[in-house]
């Protein structure tokens, strides 16, 4: 757990950091943050509870507990990461632990959009390369420099292209990933849409 938490704001163009690998397919959001930690009215204390049960079972050997990963910020995962519940508590917990970007074989849909909405870029990468990073033994601390403009990742001896949805990439570069203000700009169009929807007229009993 990092002592100070500064949420991402504005443009996200470059992310430099140490990788932390978490091996396994279909890691669900119940595992990322078990339900008992959802009893909260803000996200502040979630960082310490990330992967609580997995970590307890591994008794200090979980990647999120290893001393060498203390300062890591780029999470490297396998396929269908973040499946299951829509709880934003999961990426919020990762963010508060110190994760700034995730590279994986694939991500579950809701988890992916939650990450984008809170400023964690998620990149996909071919399985072989992911395995290569996850098994990186000769260099214990793999540092990556991720450039969102070029969708490139660089390290001492690895250079590779990262995939990210074009709409997400643009939002990070422009700083519009925090969508509320962009959506609000279309206030007039929203009002107009309301009048165009057939069901608004016949649902007189909705309220």
């Amino acid at each position: 757990m990092k002592s100070e938490f500064n949420p991402p704001i504005g443009q996200i163009i470059q992310i430099n950091g140490q990788c932390i690998s978490l091996i396994g397919n279909d890691i669900d959001t119940d595992r990322i943050i078990p339900a008992r930690f959802l009893k909260c009215v803000n996200f502040d204390s979630l960082g310490e509870s990330v992967f609580a049960d997995d970590r307890k079972n591994l008794n200090g050997k979980h990647p999120f507990d290893l001393e060498e990963n203390k300062n890591a910020s780029i999470l490297v995962v396998n396929s269908n990461f973040g499946c299951g519940s829509s709880r934003e508590h999961a990426p919020q917990a990762l963010l508060r632990w110190g994760i700034k970007a995730i590279i994986g074989e694939s991500f579950a849909d809701i988890f992916y959009s939650n990450c984008i909405a809170i400023g964690i870029p998620c990149f996909t990468l071919a399985k072989e390369l992911i395995h290569k990073i996850q098994k990186n033994k000769n260099d214990k601390y793999l540092f990556l420099e991720i450039d969102l403009k070029k969708s490139l990742a660089k390290s001492k001896d690895l250079n590779f292209h990262l995939d990210i949805k074009e709409s997400s990439r643009k939002m990070f570069l422009s700083g519009e990933w925090d969508a509320t203000s962009t959506l609000l700009e279309n206030g007039n169009l929203i009002e107009k849409k309301l009048t165009q929807l057939p069901y608004i007229k016949f649902n007189t009993k909705l309220l």
Partner: peptide, 21 residues
């Protein structure tokens, strides 16, 4: 009908819309 996260709940409350592919 689809599930959304808390930031999108905020967006729906504030704008009745969300950004989605």
């Amino acid at each position: 009908a689809f599930g959304i996260g808390t930031s999108q709940v905020r967006d729906v409350l504030a704008t009745q819309t969300i950004a989605m592919n």
